[in-house]
Nucleic acid binder design. Structure first.
Lengths: 230, 230
DNA sequence: TTTTTCAATTGATATAGCTCAATTTTTCTC
DNA sequence: GAGAAAAATTGAGCTATATCAATTGAAAAA
């Protein structure tokens, strides 16, 4: 059985096929109704509870999608390029964003009118089917992350995030991490101090190496085992 | 701002409007392709990882929808009558159930062929739009529950579940609970002993009363406050 | 009714992981 | 390049909540 409780910081399949299903005239409508924006590192892209007038397509950069909380937020996922942000806002009786998003690094974004989006769904059932696909892929990811954060201990959670950053975001065993320890803490639901301590454990055990912002996964096998066993 | 971090054990809107959007001939196809089953208390309705050949409509009874885990499961939601179970299984490349479900009490269920369901979505965009609605309502509930279990302490989590059982499942302040303390523990992500202790705290503080299986919420206001503050 | 099994309760103890405080290292700003 | 601000690290102690063990109560089976 595929273990979907690992590697859960973002969706597996990150292609935005849905627009391929549109007719030429529908594509033109989308193009005519979209706006491109640039965000600097750390800026707010959308705010939970605010009026959701647009679906957001992250073209480049890296987003953080999270629930606002007191005292701490709950990160739902990391949004790599080509992520659609705001889809779950589409349901009757709701016109607000269900979550907030901000940028980890400088990012480029396209805004597509949400009413147009709703019309496209109701006009084009193949487009709708694609959206259902995307929503359900995000649900898989959310379930996996939910399980990870509630049923695993610190070492498992951190191993999980490191693997996910490596496999799904940067797609390399060695990568330069644009996140601070406190970002990692937020992502894993731990304190910053605990992140530092567990990273040190991993380093002492030869599982990873770190040098400044650079992280090198030396023993992916073992990290996967730690992530699975919790 | 509406606080959607409370009252999170099941979806708010539990109507299955989607079938209203079908044409007569589509409805007939559904009727011709469905099977009715009866489950006794505690039986397995679907098993995570197994082949998802059907979408499941819970007609009566009470279901438990959960992720299988070791050593403990993670309950995603309680399914009251008219719940659709298995919708998130619908995405390309997947043909398995993403979660397991079982019955808390004797329950009646209708099985609808999943391939027919996919055809209906691709044929009927208004039906598809309804399904998107339903999926997103479930996402709201999942996010709320995710927040609840990760960011609240025991008293908040238990208050939340009691309120949800009262408001969304039984729709009364006094209800006979068909769940054991250990079911409540599973639902709140606590140990059975902690459930007992917190229930006692609530009783001592005059917030609830219990007599055997019967639970009476005496101070809903205060329980809501406890649920919100965590 | 008696026995067996399961559920609820209570107390004592253990622990994962947090918070707080202090220090060092890195990054940013002028 | 000096100083300031932010990030990373380390140690000590605390706390929420789990686990374990024992007891009582209730329901089911014989």
């Amino acid at each position: 059985m595929g273990n979907y409780y690992s590697n859960t910081c973002t969706v597996n399949n990150n292609n935005v096929f849905c627009f391929d299903e549109l007719t030429e005239s529908q594509k033109e409508k989308v193009d005519a109704n979209k706006v491109t924006l640039h965000y600097k590192k750390g800026e707010n892209i959308c705010k939970q509870g605010s009026f959701a007038s647009h679906i957001i397509l992250l073209k480049s950069g890296l987003g953080k999608v999270y629930l606002e909380g007191n005292p701490k937020n709950l990160i739902l996922k990391i949004a790599p390029p080509n992520s659609l942000i705001g889809l779950p806002s589409i349901y009757d009786g709701n016109n607000t964003f269900l979550y907030s998003a901000s940028s980890y690094i400088d990012s480029e974004v396209e805004l597509i009118d949400i009413e147009l989006f709703k019309v496209l769904i109701q006009e084009n059932s193949r487009f709708a089917y694609r959206i259902i696909n995307t929503l359900n892929e995000h649900t898989v990811q959310t379930y996996g992350r939910f399980y990870c954060l509630t049923n695993k201990q610190m070492h498992g959670r951190l191993a999980d995030i490191l693997l996910c950053l490596s496999e799904r975001i940067f797609r390399q065993d060695v990568f330069s991490l644009p996140l601070t320890r406190s970002d990692l803490a937020e992502l894993t639901g731990m304190s910053t101090e605990s992140v530092v301590r567990v990273m040190k454990d991993f380093k002492d055990d030869g599982l990873i190496n770190t040098d400044g912002k650079e992280i090198n996964l030396l023993n992916v096998e073992m990290l996967m085992k730690i992530s699975e066993l919790g």
